[in-house]
Design a protein around this nucleic acid. Structure first.
Lengths: 254, 254
DNA sequence: CGCGTGGTTGAACTCTGTCAAACGAGGTGG
DNA sequence: CCACCTCGTTTGACAGAGTTCAACCACGCG
């Protein structure tokens, strides 16, 4: 268990984005957690729900989304392993959007009551989780900027940069390859574009030898060019320690 | 002072969006606050800054914005009196955007250190402010949805609905009139549109007898139609008490 | 009365959307 | 092992919302 804890996605995640101590993460994981495996397209919590527990993603991808009157969908966040996608439900009773899986996923649920009790007793931990929700908001600001003021090409490049950095357990560079179980349709719904447009720009990227997105795998051949097209600067993700430093910290081989 | 406190914008604001007690708001206002009057277009904190205090808006409007490489600006939030626009700086050291005034404004500054000390001692207060930042994130999700999936007409209607509800001290209805010191240019930068497009749609609204936006005053003649065009539902603002209930609570005449 | 900020207008242009159909890889069942 | 289904991707022709550029207007303030 001890050894396994070191590789827990939540630990990796909180270590890279907060000043949390390992002991405090351990306290989190000692809460009465229920694990569950669910398939792709599973609705974890729906708009209007009043959840009584928080969800932690152990494996797989999820997204938060809303559906408009005309049936159009807008994805307002992607979540990767280690994320606590609905931490907000701790203080906002009613869900104003849905949380669904984009791939088969392994989830863990932490009861609000238990979490609230722990946070009340441990102010450092409360601050770390507050900080996590603030980073989620920073990502939203970046999305607003991207959707509001960038062309489709830059938007697509930007989301790919973001997801790469957020999922990357090791440093990002050329020939980076990550599992990205996201369809072009889902990218379109996140970027305020149509699938047709996303498809055409992705093909252009491919033709330019920049990247390849196939079989749920993203391979980046020219990271610095992609970054430049996207105007991507990872500052808004507010890493306290770069992901590769976390690997070193956890004593992992690379 | 006692009487004046009742009408303090922060009190009105926190009472309408959190379960905070009046005593706790009072504790906030007893912190060593420095007030300051600034003109329009004043930069309160700039991107890259590491502020050591939080800003409270007493009077006037402010916005948070970012500027892209090509000079385009994206406004990522509007803030009205009573808001604590950079509460996030308490836990995110480096500003990833700028905070500027849209009108002459009266600001109050609360040192981080003092605020952090109070929040550490008073968990209820910490929860209330955490909740406030979560509502800011909910507004951002709404903006992403609006910018990503709605036509210009609906987007413009939506932001007008939102600002009306957020500033309204009394209930909203027909012939509602609010001070809105926001130019069409600023609306455009918030909505991911150009000033030309905003202008044309506003004229259309005016021709339809729906509303009028003139001389920094917004007058709404047909609230329910505007709401409908915008697909506006105030749920995402997560009011704990409707603004008019707060008025009653504060013993105000209407 | 002049200046400046902010609002208004018109014409040409373009990026992205719409619609509709075809393709391809992976999995399933007969 | 092939037919068949499904999900996701690809393609083409066309339409349209919003942009760009550039000029003009109007009101409020010193």
């Amino acid at each position: 268990m001890e050894a396994k804890l070191h590789y827990h996605p939540l630990i990796r995640h909180l270590l890279s984005t907060t000043d949390i101590s390992e002991d405090n993460v351990r306290l989190l994981l000692e809460l009465p957690i229920v694990e569950q495996d669910v398939g792709k397209g599973h609705t974890i919590v729906a708009e209007g729900d009043r959840p009584s527990r928080c969800c932690l993603i152990l494996e797989g991808f999820t997204c938060r989304s809303r559906v408009l009157a005309d049936g159009a969908r807008q994805i307002v966040a992607f979540h990767v392993p280690g994320d606590l996608p609905d931490l907000q439900s701790l203080h906002l009773k009613r869900m104003d959007h849905s949380l669904t899986t984009l791939s088969p996923a392994r989830l863990a649920f932490i009861p609000h009551e238990a979490l609230r009790g722990l946070l009340r007793a441990n102010h450092d931990l409360a601050e770390s989780l507050w900080r996590r929700t603030l980073i989620d908001a920073a990502i939203l600001r970046e999305w607003v900027t991207s959707i509001g003021r960038k062309l489709a090409r830059a938007r697509i490049a930007h989301i790919l940069c973001e997801l790469t950095v957020r999922t990357a357990a090791v440093e990002v560079g050329n020939d980076t390859r990550i599992a990205l179980p996201v369809t072009q349709n889902e990218l379109a719904d996140a970027l305020g574009l149509t699938i047709v447009s996303v498809n055409r720009h992705l093909q252009e990227f491919r033709r330019e030898g920049l990247l390849e997105l196939r079989h749920r795998t993203l391979t980046i051949y020219d990271w610095s060019k992609l970054r430049h097209i996207a105007e991507f600067d990872s500052d808004y993700l507010h890493f306290t320690r770069p992901p590769d430093a976390v690997s070193v910290l956890l004593g992992e081989r690379r």
